[in-house]
Simulated assay, not measured.
Amino acid sequence: MDGGIAVAGRIGPNAITQAAAALDAALPGDAVDALFAEAGLARYRHDPPERMVDEREVTALHRVLRARLPPAQLRALTREAGLRTGDYLLAHRIPRPVQWLLRVLPAPLAARVLLSAIRRHAWTFAGGGAFACAAGHPVRLAIASCPLCRGARLDHPACDYYAATFERLFARLVHPRARVTEVACEAMGAAACVFELRWRGCWRGSRRRWPA
């Protein structure tokens, strides 16, 4: 894998704000207030962060969500937060001309270009973790010392937020049938959290993947 070490300790505010949005859409406001208070993040309920946050705050929020929400609901809500983060990046961080270019490139080439951009910006989402990626089919992305599940011991993968964010970006920019699965997780004892991305219906050299 082609890797890079993230800047230690800071993560973009979407990890907090989009989690809050997903929770607010599904739970009563006082329940969300209680979750944020337990995580030590009550101040963000009235003053959402606009700049990079301490990665320990993200770790604490996910620790509380795992402790307080049923597994199926937890997975659905953290996945929704990841999809919302992908939508935010598409709307505000990835220039429209770049999005257009990626959509007209053959899917394997578009995947390589997008991976390069994700690797350059890994410091914004991996915190003190180390990000690595490899092109191919499947595409592989990995985060060692992952902030979402740091310190957790589970019998199932715990990083649906990252998986959903990656899936949204690749489905919108590389291939509409792109799907991401977390195939290894540090919470289960793996050396890193590893995500595999596959898409169906793509043929080598194809430039036509999007509905007319």
Score class of each variant (00 low, 15 high):
90 L>W: 03
91 A>K: 05
93 R>I: 07
94 I>C: 00
94 I>Y: 02
94 I>F: 02
94 I>V: 13
94 I>T: 03
95 P>H: 07
96 R>W: 05
98 V>L: 14
99 Q>R: 12
99 Q>I: 05
99 Q>F: 03
100 W>V: 09
100 W>K: 05
100 W>F: 03
101 L>K: 06
102 L>E: 08
106 P>C: 09
106 P>I: 13
107 A>Q: 07
108 P>R: 15
108 P>A: 13
109 L>H: 09
109 L>S: 10
109 L>M: 13
110 A>Q: 11
112 R>A: 15
112 R>M: 14
112 R>L: 14
113 V>E: 10
116 S>N: 15
116 S>V: 13
117 A>V: 15
118 I>D: 07
119 R>E: 15
119 R>S: 14
122 A>L: 09
122 A>R: 12
124 T>H: 04
124 T>N: 10
125 F>R: 01
126 A>R: 01
127 G>A: 08
129 G>L: 03
129 G>P: 03
129 G>W: 01
130 A>C: 08
130 A>G: 07
131 F>N: 02
131 F>E: 02
132 A>L: 05
132 A>H: 08
133 C>D: 14
133 C>Y: 07
134 A>T: 14
135 A>I: 09
135 A>F: 09
135 A>M: 08
136 G>W: 11
137 H>A: 13
138 P>H: 04
139 V>F: 11
139 V>D: 07
140 R>W: 05
143 I>V: 15
143 I>T: 02
144 A>P: 03
144 A>M: 03
144 A>I: 05
144 A>S: 12
144 A>Q: 12
147 P>R: 04
147 P>Q: 05
149 C>S: 11
151 G>Q: 06
152 A>S: 06
154 L>S: 06
154 L>C: 08
155 D>K: 01
155 D>H: 02
156 H>T: 12
156 H>N: 04
157 P>V: 03
157 P>Q: 01
157 P>D: 01
158 A>F: 04
158 A>H: 04
159 C>F: 01
159 C>N: 01
162 Y>G: 03
163 A>K: 00
163 A>P: 01
164 A>D: 01
165 T>M: 10
165 T>F: 04
165 T>K: 03
166 F>K: 02
166 F>Y: 15
166 F>M: 03
166 F>I: 10
